[in-house]
Amino acid sequence: MLNYLRELIKIQSVSGAEKNIALYIKSEMEKYFDECETDALGNLICRKNGSGKKLLFCAHMDEIGFIVTTIDDKGFVHFAPVGGIDFVAAAYASVAFANGTRGVMVPEAGLKSDDFKAEKFVVDIGAKDKKQAERLVKTGDTFALVPSYTRLRGNRICGRPIDDKIGCAILMAAAKEADSFKNNTTFVFSVQEEVGIRGSRVAAFNCRPDYGIALDVTSTGDGHGSKPMAVSLGEGAAVKIKDASVICDSELVRKMGEIAEENNIKWQREVLTAGGTDTASLQLAASGCRAGCISVPTRYIHTANEEIDCSDAKACLDLVVAIARTELE
């Protein structure tokens, strides 16, 4: 799982530009699943044929980033955000474009952090003028903060983008157990989650699952100055009850907790007061399905250093496999 995470982090996949990461995931998934196809929007839909209920797991492939709007005479790159960007966290960070071009995210000189917003930032790619910059970067190109993966003490890692490459890595690792699955199981690697929970909606419409479970990150209440929240790093897989986009199916939530208990998987209940996940669109696509979400507790989401505890990710992986192995009714 962590090997997958390391590989996935390296492949840039700003919303709308998920093609390369889909190709990589597909090459792995084809080893374990029966059919892997990309739909009209670029969602990767992988099916493991089986009898029983249609069970769908979904993790989004896209990451937050930026899109080039224009290049000025000094050679500075202007941009608009793609997804929820925290500019305090992005200030002076290194960025990378898909073609390898690097740059620094620079706020207007003297600007106070309260006034940080996209229009006040440029990326300095080291070009001496517009002409030189345009050889490397053009309007409409996407880019993101430089990816990273760092081991911290104990079981912890930090880096970016953990959101939601960890979800993808969990599903890829779970796929290895596909032969023991007891449901008609589909894994969806979705696009455009960060720009309004878009890709998963059409994928779910296509698959018409009975059960839809998203894999994503969630906030925690145990960080420096965190808002109160009953989710902590190292306390296990978080089973979502509610976030700002969805109220999960209560029967499915109960069942997930029960499966976790039966399999001695450490789990915690999650109520997230902000943020949304693919769960919302799974629940509402076509005539709807019973929807839930397994979350990896994560500190500093949407920054250059998102932090997780690997034991939580492992618990999420175990829970995915345990659910897939449980004959659902």
């Binding site: 009209a40 793609v82 720009v195 309004g196 878009r198 890709g199 059409v202 419409f205 296509n206």
Partner: peptide, 16 residues
């Protein structure tokens, strides 16, 4: 993130 046109919704019609 949003074209401000029908395309933003049309993309998500049916299975995409």
């Amino acid at each position: 993130e949003n074209t401000g046109t029908n395309a933003t919704a049309l993309t998500l019609c049916g299975d995409g």
